Amino acid sequence: MRHIAAFAAPALLALSLAACSGPGPADGTSPTDGASATDAVEAVPSARPTPAAAASEASPAVPAANVIGLEGLGDLRIGEAVPRGSSWTERGAQAGDACRTVSSPAYPGVYAIVEGGKVRRITVGARSDVKLVEGVGVGASEAEVKKWFAGFREEPHKYEDAPAKYLTAPNAASGDPALRFEIGSDGKVGLIHVGTMPVLGYVEGCA
Rank of each mutant, 00 (worst) to 15 (best):
A95Q: 05
P63S: 12
V102L: 11
A112C: 12
V114G: 03
G184D: 06
Y159V: 02
E182W: 04
L76A: 02
P105D: 09
G109H: 04
R180I: 06
A172I: 04
R120E: 14
P63E: 09
A112I: 11
W148M: 08
I122R: 02
I122A: 02
F181E: 02
A143Q: 15
S141Q: 06
D129Q: 11
G92S: 09
V62G: 04
V138P: 00
E182L: 11
A164L: 08
G116S: 12
L179H: 02
I78V: 13
F181A: 03
G72M: 05
F152Q: 03
A95S: 10
S87A: 15
I68L: 03
A55I: 08
A126M: 07
P105Y: 09
S56Y: 07
A54K: 14
G184I: 00
G96E: 09
A150Y: 05
A58Y: 09
L76E: 00
V110Y: 00
A162S: 14
E57Q: 10
A64T: 04
P177T: 05
E71P: 01
S103I: 01
V114A: 07
I183G: 00
A61Y: 00
G139S: 07
G79T: 06
Y111Q: 04
L76Q: 00
Y159H: 09
P83I: 10
K147E: 15
Y107A: 01
D176C: 01
G117Q: 10
Q94R: 04
S86H: 03
Y159C: 04
W148V: 13
E57S: 10
A140P: 07
G135N: 13
G109S: 10
D75E: 15
Y166F: 15
A162W: 04
A54W: 05
E144L: 13
E182P: 02
G74C: 03
E142A: 14
A164K: 05
P156H: 05
I68K: 00
T89V: 12
T168F: 01
P156L: 08
D186H: 11
P177G: 08
S141M: 05
A93R: 13
S104D: 12
G85E: 13
S59Y: 05
V67F: 03
G74H: 01
A53T: 12
E134I: 01
S174H: 08
G92N: 10
S104E: 05
S59G: 02
G96S: 15
V138G: 00
E160V: 02
G79C: 06
A178L: 04
N171Q: 15
P156C: 05
I122Y: 01
A162P: 09
E57N: 07
V67R: 03
A65S: 15
E71V: 11
L70T: 01
H157P: 08
A143D: 15
A150R: 13
A164Q: 07
E57G: 04
S141R: 10
D75N: 14
Y107C: 02
V67E: 10
G175T: 11
K165P: 01
D129A: 10
